[in-house]
Amino acid sequence: MEFNVSTFVLEIINFLVLLWVLQRLFYKPLLKVIADRKQVIEQALAEAKNQQQQAEEKAALYENRQHQWEQEKQLALQTFQQQIDLERKLQLEKLKLELEQERQKAKVTLSLQQQEFQQRVEKQALENGAKFSALLLQQAVGPELELRLFQLLLDKISTFPEVIKQQLIVTGEMDALPQVKVTSAYPLTAEMHQQLEQKLMTLMNRPADVQYHQSEDLIAGLRLDIGAWVLNANLNHELIGFAELDYVSK
């Protein structure tokens, strides 16, 4: 256990040299690379944190936007639902109106059809009545009725209104010899011919060319055709008039 000054001094120098060498070769480069690595790691961490923050901000933004979209969607759905309800209401009202119109139209059509059917039935009934009457009258008529209808015709000619008489005169003046067609259900006697021609000449103020025809369709009575004028005094015409009377009155 001796103390050696040389060893003491050299050891101090050795340690200082070792310290210098290790500082240059060992600590400095290693601390530098550790610091660089730490810096890189910190940068990466900071970048990652920044990215995470950005991602969180974006996520929050997207969540907010999604929430807004959800609200807008709900609002749009509500508006759409309201529009649908309104449209449905309008369409229902329109449909009700159209249905009402159609119902009214159908009602009117039905009423018209019923009315027409009733008219047709009535007409048919009247026609049938006229036919039955005609059949009945065909069996019941005779010269007496013919004579009486002839008298009725003469009376009718005598009681013509003045206006008609003037027109018949004008019609007769258009021809030199006015044509008069006389149709009867039974043959007329010469006396009856004479009375009729006399009556016609009185009516038209001149003699007429009278032609006589016979038609059983008249059942009984006569028909005079003076130009465009037709004067009926027969049962057939009366029955037809009876059948059509109802329509004329309606």
Binding site: S6, V17, L18
Partner: peptide
């Protein structure tokens, strides 16, 4: 006037080895 002891020689050896290892590792 300098006496070189075994401790100093050993210290130099240690210094050499440590320096070499330091250089190799860095």
């Amino acid at each position: 006037p300098v006496q070189i002891s075994a401790s100093i020689l050993t210290t130099w050896g240690i210094m050499g080895v440590m320096s070499l290892v330091a250089w190799l590792s860095t």
